[in-house]
Design a binder for these strands. Structure first.
Lengths: 141, 141
DNA sequence: AACGAAATTGATATTCATTATCAATATGAG
DNA sequence: CTCATATTGATAATGAATATCAATTTCGTT
């Protein structure tokens, strides 16, 4: 696995240690293609490691974010969600205010325009978040 | 003041009462053109009403959001910020990761593309948030 | 292979933003 | 003016995220 190698490399570069818990969490998380709240991920990991601690999940996710293998997403329910970074492509979110459904989308033109805005303001862009709220096809009656 | 009338109308329509505290908070807030954390607004209101309660500020902001006279913004520092809605125009944010500076920008093309994305997914859009993170002209060395 | 300094874990306590509670008070329709 | 009802504000409660710390694990070095 490429990403897992990246994680191992990250740990090594930072003088951090590879542990069973960290590796299990990172391995599971990086293979997924969806959002996780900390609780959701904690519950998944717990299935194969009932001893895992909540704090360890938090800490490992923080490392993954720092390693740029994960990003944080704040929607509007007060929970922080994490999702694995799929190299090269970035996606944004469309959220249904009624059923909570989350749809991901990519739009290169929007990305381009954002770069342009940053350039106008003389900003060096590192990342961005774009969230659209509304009602999905089923919930808008 | 137009917006204050809207707020009075909102209260009336909902069967809520107009109170000195509510009116003072709404009046002050709606005349501003910037973000407030709850604490910031609380401190401002306290200058003219030292008895004001923290909870009342929270409650009034919630009403303003429900009345669509304010919007919540979640950046990445765990604090919720509120800003008055300036009818017709919407703006997004550019945030410096080092100094915390917040720049507002408007970009009609981005807005248009977002509408297009929503249409493709058959979503009925109500609002959206777009936040760009990076380093401002001074902080990128 | 074993040692040992340093990092990690996980249970628990703590912090801090936000929300709920509730007795006292204020509002406004009739 | 009255009175049912909403509101206020002090305080307690909630809940997500972080800090603490003793016990354990890791890994570079012997």
């Amino acid at each position: 696995m490429n990403k897992e190698k990246n994680f191992q490399g990250y740990l090594h570069d930072k003088g951090l240690k590879s542990t069973r818990q960290r590796d299990d969490i990172a391995s599971y998380f990086l293979q997924q293609d969806k959002h996780f709240t900390v609780e959701e991920l904690y519950n998944e990991i717990k299935k194969s490691d009932p001893q895992i601690g909540y704090a360890t999940v938090y800490r490992t996710l923080k490392l993954l974010v720092d390693a740029e293998l994960a990003v944080e997403c704040q929607f509007s329910d007060g929970l922080t969600r994490f999702e694995p970074v799929h190299k090269g492509k970035h996606h944004d979110h469309l959220i249904c205010l009624k059923c909570g459904k989350i749809i991901e989308f990519e739009n290169d033109k929007i990305e381009q325009l954002q770069l342009e805005v940053a350039r106008e303001q003389n900003f060096e862009l590192t990342n961005h978040k774009c969230v659209l709220y509304g009602y999905c096809s089923r919930c808008k009656e």
